[in-house]
Design a binder for these strands. Structure first.
Length: 265
DNA sequence: AAGAGTAGCAACCGCAGGGCG
DNA sequence: ACGCCCTGCGGTTGCTACTCT
C-alpha cells in the first residue's frame, strides 16, 4: 500500500515564501500555536501551503531566536568537533548551538566549513583517541558499529525531539545508521511566486534555552567511543547557555522574484 | 560589458519512526 | 498487534547573487 501524500500538491503553493505568507504564518503560530498538527495548520491559517512547508518555514526562518549567518569561530569549532564525532547529525549539532537551525548549520558546513576543516584551518579540541582517529577522516562520519544487544531505553529530550522515546534500535539508527540510500536526481517543479520586494525588520529579545549536554555523552557511551564532547563544547553547558542571551535577531525579508515552472524529469 | 562559472542558501523531497486509535 | 497519521530528519535541488575571464 502506497504512502498517502502529506497534502494535495496540485492545490498548494510552493517555492519561496512571500512576506505576506510569512506574516500570516507568524501571527497564526504566535496567536494559536501549532496545535500539534502542522498538516491542518495551513488551512486554518488560510495559507495555500503544505503543512511540512509551513513547519519548515517556521522552524528555519520565522521562529523567534533564530540567528542567520555570522558564525563565530567558537561555533565553527563546536560544529567541527561534533561532526567529527557523530557525523552529519545536524539536529543534534544544532541543539548545541542556540539560535541555529539544522538547515543553517548543514548549509554552512556544506558551503564553507567543510572546506576550512579539510584544509586544516579549524581544529577540534577533542583529545580522545577516537576523535583523533576520526579527525584523520574529516569528511566522513564514523563508520557504523555493531548494535549491542542490550541497550537501555533513553528519553530523547536532548535530541531536540521532545516527544520521542528512543528505543535501542532507533537510537542506533539516529546515531549511526545512514537513513536511506541516495535517490536519483529529480528536477522538481517550482511554483511561481509574487514579485513583491519588501524589507522588514523584526527585533526579538530572547531568553536562552538551556540545552543539556547529556546527548552526546549518552550517544558516545552507546557506540563505545570515549569522547570528551562535554569539554569541547563550552557554550553548551547549561550555565553558559543561560548566561548568554544571544543577540537580537534581525530578520530581513528577501526579494521574491518570479520564477519559472519546471517540469519534473 | 557580457557570458560563464561558482557560492550561498531557502526550500523541497522521501523516508524513518513514534503516537495513537 | 496492526496500520495509519504526523513529525522530524538528512540529502538534494535549483535559484539568485557574486566573481572571474
Amino acid at each position: 500500500m502506497g504512502r498517502a501524500p502529506c497534502c494535495d500538491k496540485r492545490n498548494v503553493k510552493r517555492g519561496p515564501w512571500s512576506p505576506e505568507e510569512d506574516a500570516i504564518l507568524r501571527s497564526y503560530v504566535e496567536m494559536y500555536g501549532t496545535g500539534g498538527n502542522w498538516i491542518a495548520l495551513p488551512q486554518k491559517a488560510g495559507l495555500k501551503r503544505c503543512g511540512k512547508s509551513c513547519r519548515l518555514r517556521w522552524l528555519n526562518y520565522l521562529r523567534p531566536n533564530i540567528k542567520h549567518g555570522g558564525f563565530t569561530e567558537e561555533e565553527d569549532t563546536i560544529i567541527c568537533s561534533l561532526y567529527n564525532s557523530i557525523g552529519s547529525r545536524w539536529s543534534i549539532i544544532a541543539s548545541k548551538l542556540p539560535g541555529r537551525t539544522d538547515n543553517d548549520i548543514k548549509n554552512y558546513w556544506n558551503t564553507k566549513l567543510k572546506k576550512k576543516f579539510t584544509a586544516g584551518l579549524i581544529t577540534t579540541t577533542s583529545t580522545s583517541s577516537s576523535s583523533r582517529i576520526y579527525h584523520s577522516l574529516p569528511t566522513s562520519p564514523p563508520p557504523p558499529l555493531p548494535l549491542p544487544d542490550h541497550l537501555p531505553t533513553i528519553k530523547a529530550e536532548s535530541f531536540a525531539m521532545p516527544r520521542r522515546t528512543c528505543s535501542p534500535k532507533s537510537m542506533h539508527s539516529l546515531l549511526i545508521c545512514r537513513r536511506r540510500p541516495k535517490r536519483p536526481p529529480l528536477l522538481r517543479p517550482r511554483s511561481q511566486s509574487t514579485t513583491t520586494t519588501t524589507t522588514a525588520t523584526t527585533t526579538t529579545t530572547t531568553t536562552a534555552t538551556t540545552t543539556t549536554t547529556t546527548t552526546t555523552t549518552i550517544a558516545v557511551a552507546i557506540i563505545g567511543l570515549s569522547m570528551e564532547t562535554e569539554a569541547t563544547t563550552p557554550s553548551s553547558s547549561p550555565s553558559s547557555a543561560s548566561a548568554v542571551p544571544w543577540p537580537v535577531t534581525l530578520t530581513a525579508f528577501r526579494a521574491y522574484p518570479a520564477r519559472g515552472v519546471r517540469i519534473r524529469r
